[in-house]
Amino acid sequence: MVSAARLSEPAFAAGAAIGVRRVSHRFDLGGAVLPVIEGLSVEIEPGSFVALLGPSGCGKSTLLRLVAGLEPPSAGQLLVDGLPIAGPSPERVVVFQDPTLFPWRTVWDNAALGLEAQGVRGEERRERVGTALARVGLAGFANAYPHQLSGGMAQRAALARAIVNQPRVLILDEPLGKLDSLTRIAMQAELVGMWQRAGFTTLMVTHDVEEALFMAQRVLVLSDRPARLVADLAVDLPYPRHRGDPRIAELRRQALGLLGLDATW
């Protein structure tokens, strides 16, 4: 990471503000209607790091898909810097729990995906892909195929594929959910470092309370389906943070209580 810090910084546009205004979303399940999000309103500051916590199946991923523009909401408004979200855009990139790398492309070509789709070519493409791969520590694996990577490396490649677009909003859906605990801890710090350097707004779903408190400035706790905002916790701690910080322990007890899991320790 020391060497990565010396690399030229990519020219990220500053993070964007996200507005979620009375958003509801329901799925049509062959006649039956499944309400997943109900009247949710949240304002997210540009450049902030917000974590979403909530019970499994409550609609967190659905909310991220709405912000990404992959689906329009059933009701309400979603805004980026005050303008309605009309569809997906490389300004708002998603990293999923599965790396979903294209198995027929090398790591390099996977990372170049967005630039290829946007018609960025030549020297600029090479430069941006090279920088992104170096940033996630995969410069030496440019020619490897996804099946040759470990889980952590694959997720790093997915991260490179996202940041190469110089997004203003990075959307992370349980990005570290499938990694072993050591890789996870290492990548938590790397993600925070990346966010701090680049300045994009980060919206991350996690099922790990501690991870949310270690990484985010703000933790939104959602209710059972249909998702409503239960609590909005400010994690008023400077970075780098310490896992053993008593304030984190305090917030953790609070968050677990809000999720209906009363900490008995």
């Binding site: 898909r65 990404a68 523009g69 992959l70 997906p88 855009s89 490389p90 708002r92 990139v93 998603v94 999923f96 599965d98 979903t100 294209f102 995906l113 967005g114 290829e116 789709a117 946007q118 594929r161 677009n165």
Partner: peptide, 18 residues
């Protein structure tokens, strides 16, 4: 084809031909 591949490509600005 895994639908997630389309989601990934679409968020990165891929059009129909891509």
């Amino acid at each position: 084809v895994n639908r997630a591949y389309y989601d990934v490509a679409r968020t990165m600005g891929a059009g129909r031909a891509f």
